[in-house]
Simulated assay, not measured.
Amino acid sequence: MLYFDHSASTPPYEEVIETMMQVMKKHYANPSSLHAGGVEAAGLIQRSRALIAEQMKTTKGSWLFTSGGTESNNLAIKGVAKQYRSRGNHIIATSIEHASVHETLKQLEAEGYLVTYVPVSSSGHVQVKHIQAAITKDTILVTVMHVNNEIGTIQPIQEIGEMLKEYPKTIFHVDAVQSMGKLRLDPDGWGIDLVSGSAHKLRGPRGIGFLYVREGVKLYPLSSGGTHELGFRAGTENVPAIVAAAKALRLSVEGSVQRKNRMELLSKQLRSFIQSKQELKLNGAEPLAPNIIHFSYPGMKPEVIVHMLEQNGIIASTKSACSSKDNKPSRVLLALGASEKHASGGVRISLGDEHEQKHMNELSLALTRIIEQLKPLERSSTY
């Protein structure tokens, strides 16, 4: 089977698996304990923290460890909202944020916070001027994803960060789950206060995430207990996963330039094929992440195409893994101005390190066969 669902989860590096096993065997002591075993475990966490800071070139803040991208986003957004409530109650986000951001904001709205969802263009990009126009004296947070998890559009994070320097009381959070370790990301240089990441999106273990917190930014803890993770997140740390996650990030960053160049060629090939088929519609436009290709077959249920791809030995997905089991039209495609019919038929292809040109050829041939099979059914009410 060809696995084209790397945006949902990635196969861990062999070195990462080996590292995690070794730490589980040798360093099982609680890192909060004062005995030698605890001190050694705590040292591994600190070295992992330092390694991530080195790889991400951050010197103005600290990296926390969470249970994943969802918790990182929740802690960043709710932590700011509750910590700085006396400063204001207004938050700005784009209309195409990941569910872990979107649903968090909906919860805060129910608690009395005001949220402005800035629209994106038909290509899937937000304009800096629209974010700036939404800022008020009560704006405490701007949250914008770096790469959209569904269609792969890259947002102008650097430009937004530069603009927000004019608003020192407004905190800037970036959901970098789909870009960390893959694309250039400079939290310190771009004026980002909070950055979320997830290890299993960059060939690390599941259940471990990252959150960068710029020095001086305070977060209201979402869990009560001990003073773990610099006091922002109570709970005994998952030492094996932390060490393995740091290693996965290092390996990903070290190969990021070569990977990006290679994937740009592969995605260009696949996008050209999709554009050559009148039945298919490519979603999103440059700048795009090189590893995500998203298209629709208007009038066809995406799960039908995904199951037919699987019958051809290819694993793909409909939208984000978090939302793939609901039957609603894509919230992201609707935000781009797509019709409900178009927004109901999206399929995501996401590339990984193992893919080569021959795999693009296999995928293109499979899609050609599927289109020929589905053509007679295009006008059927069944689909």
Rank of each mutant, 00 (worst) to 15 (best):
L114A: 08
Q107N: 14
H146P: 04
Q83C: 13
H98S: 14
E103K: 09
H125M: 02
Y117N: 02
T116K: 15
V115H: 05
I154L: 12
N89D: 12
V147G: 02
S95Q: 10
T70G: 01
V126A: 06
G69N: 01
G88W: 11
V115A: 08
I151P: 06
S86K: 10
N74D: 06
Q132W: 08
V174T: 11
Y167I: 01
L164A: 07
A81G: 13
Q83N: 09
A93V: 08
I154Y: 02
T104Q: 09
S86M: 09
E162P: 02
I131K: 02
P119R: 00
E166L: 12
G124K: 06
T66R: 07
R85A: 15
V118Q: 04
L141S: 11
V174S: 11
N73H: 04
V147F: 05
L64G: 12
N149Q: 04
I92D: 00
T70C: 02
V177F: 00
T136K: 04
G88S: 10
K106M: 14
H90K: 12
R87K: 15
T94F: 05
T94N: 15
G88R: 10
A110Y: 11
G152Y: 01
A76C: 07
E111P: 14
Q127E: 08
V80Y: 06
N73F: 05
I171P: 08
I92L: 12
G161H: 05
T170L: 09
P168V: 14
I171R: 14
L141E: 13
G112T: 05
